[in-house]
Design a protein around this nucleic acid. Sequence first.
DNA 1: CTAACAAATTGGAATGGTTCTAAGTAGCAA
DNA 2: TTGCTACTTAGAACCATTCCAATTTGTTAG
Lengths: 143, 143
Amino acid sequence: MPSVIMNPPDALAQRLADSGLRSTPQREFIYGVLMKKRDHPTADEVYARVRADLPSISLATVYNCLETLVQCGLIRVVNFERGPTRYCPNLSPHAHFHDEQSGTIHDIDLPADLLEKVASILPPGFDAKSVEVTFRGKSQPAA
Amino acid sequence: MPSVIMNPPDALAQRLADSGLRSTPQREFIYGVLMKKRDHPTADEVYARVRADLPSISLATVYNCLETLVQCGLIRVVNFERGPTRYCPNLSPHAHFHDEQSGTIHDIDLPADLLEKVASILPPGFDAKSVEVTFRGKSQPAA
DNA sequence: CTAACAAATTGGAATGGTTCTAAGTAGCAA
DNA sequence: TTGCTACTTAGAACCATTCCAATTTGTTAG
Ligand SMILES: [Mn+2]
Ligand SMILES: [Mn+2]
Ligand SMILES: [Zn+2]
Ligand SMILES: [Zn+2]
């Protein structure tokens, strides 16, 4: 047994193992990209960022890995109209504000009680697995 | 002046005129398709339906006319994930329930006071021009 | 009515994000 | 070592939508 103290397994390796999937450099770096700059990048933007560390990664792999991370529940998918799919690292319940001018996406905290009220408008017979709240408009640049 | 009594101008002709646009058979029939079966068809589905009356209409024209109707505020655009854009004839405030099994879209009435509460979660500096509420899940077939 | 002009339609090509495919690579197990 | 499976890769294919250039239609002016 080596004297090296084992690091606690990171969230990614753990989740992948739970799903019977392997931890690969591509998955690790892509996950890192999402965790580091917590915005809402497109697959192309993730591709551009991860190429700094993995110059030979392919765009197909970026799509594959992002899909894997979504399946593992580590990131979420966000879509605005027909624009390219974006990926969101924020797992807490929130709405999205899409600034039309800048194209920026802002996370808006969504209180649990409001989420409940929204879900309660569904007539009997409707069983919602997910609720999405999306705003579009102008936002002041942050102070 | 002809003795024919003039029909009250329909909503479409009126709205088009207001925008300096012409009333064309293509626009009239496409609008009719949306008003008749008040579901959420894709451009292809509209194309299929309108070809019964206008066999020589082109898909490009279907896209053009639908966009025109949206600009005139007569119909609305709805998107689910990356699926083809759908068109909604219901102009009152409502949420959409997307049945994953059947692919059906259901309109869910959205009370004005709830819409207000939802809009009120926006911090100062955010000016929303539109709010969208979307559910995804299973729905019982209507009785 | 005709001529001129602008608006609208058309078929087909181009676009762009995403998915598919087939071939290669890497890690693990017997 | 061999075999097995998962994973990555490059590039082709896909498909909803937009663009383009040519034609048709409608409107207006003479
Ligand atoms: Mn945008
Ligand atoms: Mn669907
Ligand atoms: Zn988010
Ligand atoms: Zn609707």
